[in-house]
Design a protein around this nucleic acid. Structure first.
Lengths: 221, 221
DNA sequence: TAGATTGTTAATCGATTAACAATC
DNA sequence: TAGATTGTTAATCGATTAACAATC
């Protein structure tokens, strides 16, 4: 089934893509609380968006509300789930089983949503052979062969900075569709590979910039 | 010393704040490689931005380049470092010493940049008393008293979803200036507290959305 | 000097918001 | 029906880019 908005031609703007998971998360909470209906105004208030933005975002994909009523929480949740593609299963591999890699592998947040880590690789001989969340850590030398024999939707990259581009090159030559990059490097990849970055230090530096901005403002009145 | 752009009145746009750390990271690399000069065109090519955008971003804060030459890498790096506020030290605390909290505490990326975790709290009695990166894990009951006696620039929140808002409330009542939130919750805090979110699942869901978008496009030609 | 590249202005593009007819 | 709230259009706002005079 094709979702309405996709046919409109243009790709969905980044801003919208970034907000969809926020809607999904909050709607899940509401459903969990047994709340049946919600209006765009209420959603906006809870999530610090304008009501218009929420309606506009959703209208990329269809008409899910009802005048005078708002949205049915369960229905809308189902729709957003479908829009995000969370009705499917995704095969992931993890490259880099250090502290961060371990934390990601153990992170319970997405296990229930059809994401599974099917293989884990590391270069450290002390880690190779160990179990992590029920998966044996393999030497990274085995990665190339693994990629030939298995389809991977998402490769999680939690390697040190200096290793990440060469790993990305390897992944780029395979049929891996996307990289979830936790390493502090700007990856160069083929056009058809999607990269989503989690840059921890960038995030912290941005925070600190705004912190200092705040201090300036308070100082000046 | 006040940086030029700040006086212009308006706050620096989010987009610019988001790109500054990327410039910083890449310039650090260039300096490390011993490269002396770079033009906005070269920077743009390496980082997938337009040259105009880079010049425009930098011009918020001053004139760091030279016509016909470009930018001196060391100089520009120093300036960006100053703009971000990385010449100062920042006192951090970590709340939640689970897998993710541990990984953050051990993450080497920001240790060298003046960030220090001075206290760690958790609610799990099995963790309390343990050492993590040279710091004893305290029971979260001690947090309130700690906040009265110590100034905290950044509180790192790595708690489960259901605990994070109550922690944020506690932090909001103290003089904590900012929260680096790793929990999958939308925090409500006083106006003067800055929140920077790392929402792992949101990031993954956004990735998956684009992955499916990509598949649609390839299918249709 | 000639070539290169900045910082900035004006033009363009895109995203957000306000407003409202449609209608539950 | 009257009140509420949608989906969408038009207006606004802001961010990006192209172009260029200034100048190293």
């Amino acid at each position: 089934m094709t979702v309405k908005g996709r046919e409109k031609g243009g790709a969905v703007p980044q801003g919208v893509v970034g907000r969809l998971p926020i809607y999904f998360r909050y709607l899940s909470e509401l459903e969990h609380q047994g709340i049946e209906r919600i209006s765009s105004a209420q959603l906006g208030k809870a999530l610090d968006f304008t009501a218009a933005q929420i309606r506009s975002d959703l209208s990329y994909f269809g008409s899910f509300g009802q005048q005078g009523y708002g949205y049915n929480v369960q229905d809308l949740l189902k729709q957003v789930r479908l829009i995000l593609g969370l009705n499917k299963n995704y095969s992931m591999i993890l490259i880099g089983a250090g502290n961060l890699g371990k934390a990601i592998a153990c992170y319970s947040g997405f296990k229930m949503q059809g994401f599974e880590i099917n293989a884990i690789f590391d270069i450290d001989p002390h880690l190779v052979g160990n179990f992590l969340e029920g998966t044996t850590i393999q030497h990274v030398d085995k990665l190339e062969d693994y990629l030939k024999e298995n389809h991977v939707d998402v490769a999680i990259l939690a390697t040190p900075k200096n290793a990440s581009q060469s790993m990305a090159d390897l992944l780029g030559k395979s049929d891996v569709e996307s990289i979830w990059n936790f390493s502090p490097a700007h990856l160069t990849v083929p056009d058809n590979v999607i990269v989503e970055n989690i840059h921890l230090t960038d995030s912290l530096y941005g925070l600190v910039f705004r912190l200092n901005e705040n201090r300036e403002i308070r100082k000046q009145g």
